[in-house]
Amino acid sequence: MRHIFQVRIGPAGFRVGSDWRAPIAELERLYAGYPAPENGVPDFTVRLFAARPWRRWLRPAVTLGGDFVLPDAAPLPLSQGLLAAEMAMNLQMALGQRRYLLLHASAVEREGRAVLMTGLSGAGKSTLAALLGARGWRLMGDEFALIDPATGMVHAFPRLVSLKNAAIGVVGDAVPQARFGPLLAGTPKGDIRHLVPDPQAVARMDEPAQPALLLFPRFGFAIAQRDLGPSEIFVRLTQASTNYVALGERGFDAMTRVVRDVPARAIDYPNAEAAIQQVEALWNAL
């Protein structure tokens, strides 16, 4: 491929090849503080390419490719090339990761122990992780929490934080503008802006943490909390994992361990400040 970028995020190395310079330039700027893949050999290959040669110039459309692909992933306009790269990298993890149980969750850490926050799109897990990251917590990741089946520890995957729509402004008030990527307006998921995790999140990304609290946040409701039974947690976590079935018995071991050992709470919140207070209060009560 013409333009190439390599990076390591947590335990996963990536190689991104592109027919265009622009997405690679953006990746280079935003991932400047990250290391290269271990031994120079990435775990996953991502390709951003023009499905038809003329699409390189004429209304350029970025098709997503790589080691693992979904058959019907729609191309994105070149102006959203950064989003295409991020989506394709996530897809490699979602479909190809076999070393860790992958939970669709954000994670923050303090004193070696982690809070995992999972929920449907729009639940606010990226927003909360970014805001907690701005208040002294270490951001471990806003998209995937990686559980090691052998140890039960959670490993960090601190990729760029993907903020959508109103969350862009909310987090924008709390962190310096220099850490933001370009505003990608009118994407299939609305407006998106990427946030570079703070330097300590990157510097310490190889430090795993003990999962200590599992939260199921829900945005847009009056403040409320509720306990969840083990079977409900089990069902919701398997739904939030893209590789639970593929991991076989290792996935079962990792999942039952989380369900058994990690206290869980569902929290409803009307605004970010209220959510942060609930998280801190639950943490202090542990």
């Binding site: 190395g13 893949p37 271990e38 031994n39 120079g40 050999v41 775990d43 076999r98 070393r99 593929a246 290792r250």
Partner: peptide, 15 residues
């Protein structure tokens, strides 16, 4: 082989 390659291939064997 480099350790990174060994890990990738170990995952492939498990898969």
């Amino acid at each position: 082989m480099p350790p990174a390659v060994a890990r990738i291939l170990e995952d492939a064997r498990a898969s």
